[in-house]
Nucleic acid binder design. Structure first.
Lengths: 111, 111
DNA sequence: TGCATATGTATGATAATGCATATTCATGGT
DNA sequence: ACCATGAATATGCATTATCATACATATGCA
């Protein structure tokens, strides 16, 4: 489910950046430190917060800790924002429209 | 586009609540005040913030001000989270699957 | 005059940050 | 096999800045 908490996690610029970087795949703490402009201790702290909120998973690799994104919070956001789709859709949304085009194309191929 | 700012707007519990209430449709300030647990002045201030961030539009109605949701920020979030769909999809997502069921049903009806 | 909403000002709480230090693990020398 | 050293990461503590809030007051409209 969507806890309002989720947005508090994303509200911090450093955490947001960390998530962007993790979108490219698993990263060690040291690599994340290079991508942001705060101290290593701050990055570790943000990773703890992200972990407790379910945004990231951790996997030890020797002395290093590899962090990666977990899908659940993003799914929750996706579900939440879907509630507001009625604001910009009459009936079919863009994604649905794209799908319909795809179905049309598949139909052509099969004939 | 998606400014990281967007999540800072949603991070505040009172603003989040206001948005939830506005999802039901246009509301006057006084109506919103009843839905949250802070002072009227605070609600007005949050509405200002929401307005500057593009979340709400305002329409005067006599001495009252009617506020309503604008679609753009929600579209932006929708686009943003789509980037992270790869985290939980191999190929077909749930929405697409639902659509396929719909197409299947329509096919049945037509036969 | 009275109702609805906005704003100025002060206050308090929360949370991010840096620095110093602790911890955990790997490595090389003896 | 053991110990010392160094690299990678986490945590305790103090500081600082930001921001939500209330109260009082101003503004606009009936």
């Amino acid at each position: 489910m969507m806890q309002q908490n989720t947005f508090q996690i994303l509200a911090d610029p450093t955490r947001f950046r960390i998530i962007e970087v993790l979108a490219a795949g698993e990263q060690a703490v040291g690599e994340l430190v290079q991508a942001v402009d705060i101290d290593q201790s701050g990055v570790s702290r943000h990773l703890r917060i992200l972990g407790e909120a379910g945004f990231v998973a951790m996997r030890p690799d020797g002395a290093r800790r590899l962090y990666s994104l977990r899908p659940e919070p993003f799914q929750a956001i996706d579900d939440w924002v879907r509630t507001y789709r009625k604001l910009w859709e009459s009936r079919l949304d863009r994604f649905e429209a794209a799908l319909e085009r795809r179905y049309a194309r598949q139909g052509e191929e099969k004939q």
